[in-house]
Design a protein around this nucleic acid. Structure first.
Lengths: 230, 230
DNA sequence: CGGACCGTTGACTCTTGTCAAAGCCAGTGG
DNA sequence: CCACTGGCTTTGACAAGAGTCAACGGTCCG
């Protein structure tokens, strides 16, 4: 299976090895403490291997965290939603790519600032520890889903998670926007965009969901959706 | 895909919901501080949902950490090797099963002892934080492998990791024992035992490895093996 | 209006899963 | 000492789910 590298415009262009990376440019315009940075869909915040100068706090939108193999195949590791932190850890470099799946805003916090604060504040340190444990649990649950589930089970489980997220933040959890392309979903679940599309279509024809404008989902039968999830 | 739950003898029997779990029995014979517990192949140390009373330090053998779906499908999340700790975290319950893949020895440490020590010892706390970060990196790498790799790429990557592990602990990293059944490998990589077997056979017929007694691997062409890995 | 991007759908291929049979090996008991 | 048994692996034949390739349509935007 070969995943294509989609290169859409100069702004979202993923820097290749050996070329000067645009993260250097980015640091000059908009990386001051607490600065909020606006991102367009498909724009990169950083790439795997970039020096880990900042932690980012998602204010708006969705950020895909992913790893890319040499031949272009991409695995999305997780999506970061408003409230989530990106880039925690002790490595000198980022260990994955971070890319907006839609228009987004992130607050940029110098990594040293957060780490200094954590060193003198046990509560903050515990919070960071818990955040990493949560990331670990998320990664393992996704692994179970991808390793054991059929396409239908993976898509259904993904939709259930989106629904649960929407349910806590709004009045009607059964209506939400995907905020991302089919390729982002496919790269999360280890499926092709065609399989994602076909599976969503099947869920629609089964009366489980309704799809508006390719991007907005209405869950019509949440019980059935949950039974379909792995 | 339906993975069978193999039940072999009373000792390794995986307790079902609602039945009294043998972990209660186990706590009576061999869970004192620092006690070393001997395990037979396929014996459980604990199950997901058991109260998290102890941390375990692997002394010998291999422990499979896994999650099981309702219908018996199992995803191995990681293998713990001598030197590794099992059961770190802040949850009140274990969040996965831990089962020996072969004869093994683990040292049992009361969870409270380790956590009390970490609270007053920043160095230990940092060590635990790093351990969790390492687990996170492992889980994500496995996710990339399982989500994007073919059967051959997954098996090759798995063998490369075993070879690297053997290389640091002994004189000849190219000869090592799997220390586990095909089903453990399959459940790690999201493959059936038949596919694992066929892929290993193919690697043998390609002259990349030699298989002795189903369980001992000789890597004959490590360059080719690495090129095959995802 | 034209182009780029995205999503959907169809036809076909192929990798992997499923089912079944047979062999191997170790442990056990006669 | 040997036959038997159970667990594990290997192999083959076949089925099915997902991937690949291609065409088309819709939407957004310059």
């Amino acid at each position: 299976m070969l995943g294509a590298i989609s290169v859409h415009d100069a702004f979202s262009y993923r820097p290749q090895q050996g070329l000067s990376r645009d993260s250097v440019v980015r640091q000059r315009d908009g990386f001051e403490n607490g600065t909020v940075r606006r991102l367009r869909a498909k724009e990169y915040i950083f790439c795997e291997g970039d020096p880990r100068t900042h932690i980012f706090h998602v204010e708006q939108g969705v950020i895909a965290l992913s790893k890319v193999l040499g031949d272009g195949r991409r695995q999305v590791i997780d999506f970061a939603y408003p409230g989530d932190y990106i880039g925690l850890g002790l490595h000198g470099e980022y260990i994955f790519d971070a890319q907006a799946t839609c228009a987004a805003k992130v607050k940029c916090i110098p990594a040293s600032a957060l780490e200094d604060a954590a060193a003198s504040d046990p509560d903050l340190a515990l919070t960071l520890y818990k955040a990493v444990l949560a990331e670990l649990a998320t990664a393992r649950n996704l692994l179970v889903c991808v390793g054991q589930g059929t396409a239908m089970e993976r898509i259904a489980a993904f939709l259930v998670r989106l629904r649960d997220r929407a349910a806590v933040s709004g009045p009607n959890g059964n209506v939400f926007s995907l905020m991302m392309r089919r390729s982002d979903i496919g790269d999360l679940l280890g499926l092709t965009i065609e399989t994602v599309s076909r599976t969503l279509t099947k869920l629609r024809s089964m009366g489980v969901i309704e799809i508006v404008n390719s991007t907005e989902i209405h869950v019509l039968d949440e019980d059935k959706l949950e039974r379909l999830a792995a």
